[in-house]
């Protein structure tokens, strides 16, 4: 069987799997961004209880592995009566995990907005909400975009783990194809190329474009 024939026979399943990988990736990214903003801001709260809760969350999710968290959410939560569909458990676990890393990026970026900006906003008599939304967050956003570019790639890679709870993503389909054909180089090799192309020619350019767009928006380009 040549490689072309291999692709003709199994290409359809790989394409289906790739679509699911992309969907999982997009949903996980939404969860990660929401978690990151929420816990990043909580980490900066003046209330020690809120700050403490956020610290515990971040340390637990960053201190253990994504695979452990995924299995915990999928196998242990049902014991407590919370049954999640494998599809939801998949992107939720990836998003919650990566969001903990993102929270540190949000916190770091907000802290690195120059003090003068905070003082100027206070001097202009802005409310604290307005100061955050109009002055601090837009600048923090631009500061944190480059590290988010790396984190988003990690999210894409993280979604491969959902295959282990039988979400039929690219990783899952490739393993099935490998088992039925024993053409490991072709199967796993193709998957490597697909992930590489997704990361290098889709995700990275989008993040670069976003960086460029945002720095123009706040007049830095």
């Amino acid at each position: 069987m040549t490689y072309i024939e291999f692709l003709q026979v199994h290409g359809g399943r790989m394409a289906d799997g790739t679509v699911l990988t992309v969907v999982q990736f997009l949903l996980a990214t939404v969860v990660a961004v929401a978690v990151a903003v929420l816990f990043g801001l909580m980490r900066l709260s003046r209330n020690p209880a809120i700050r403490g809760a956020a610290t515990v969350y971040v340390e637990i999710f960053r201190g253990t592995s994504l695979l452990i968290q995924l299995f915990w959410i999928f196998f242990v939560l049902p014991i407590f009566g919370l049954n999640l569909d494998k599809f939801v458990a998949g992107f939720l676990a990836v998003g919650l995990n990566m969001g903990a890393y993102g929270a540190e990026l949000v916190r770091g970026a907000i802290l690195s907005v120059p003090t003068g900006q905070w003082e100027a906003a206070v001097a202009l008599n802005m409310t604290s909400r307005k100061r955050m939304w109009r002055v601090i967050l837009p600048q923090a956003f631009v500061i944190m975009l480059p590290p988010w570019g790396n984190l988003v790639i990690e999210i894409l890679k993280g979604t491969a783990l959902v295959a282990l709870i039988s979400v039929t993503d690219l990783m899952f389909e490739i393993r099935q194809i490998n088992i039925s054909t024993f053409m490991s180089v072709q199967a796993f090799g193709t998957a490597l190329i697909v992930y590489y192309v997704l990361a290098r020619f889709f995700v990275t350019p989008v993040m670069r474009a976003l960086e460029h767009f945002m720095s123009r928006r706040i007049g830095r380009a």
């Binding site: 790639i153 894409l156 890679k157 993280g158 491969a160 783990l161 295959a163 282990l164 990783m171 490739i174 393993r175 490998n178 024993f182 053409m183 490991s184 180089v185 796993f188 090799g189 998957a191 490597l192 992930y195 590489y196 990361a199 290098r200």
Partner: peptide, 22 residues
């Protein structure tokens, strides 16, 4: 280096383990 960094470790683990026997 870019290929390794932008593809999942899980996939690389399978690749190394299953490609050898072929």
């Amino acid at each position: 280096v870019e290929l390794i960094r932008s593809t999942p470790l899980l996939l690389q683990v399978f690749f190394v383990f299953y490609v050898g026997p072929q």
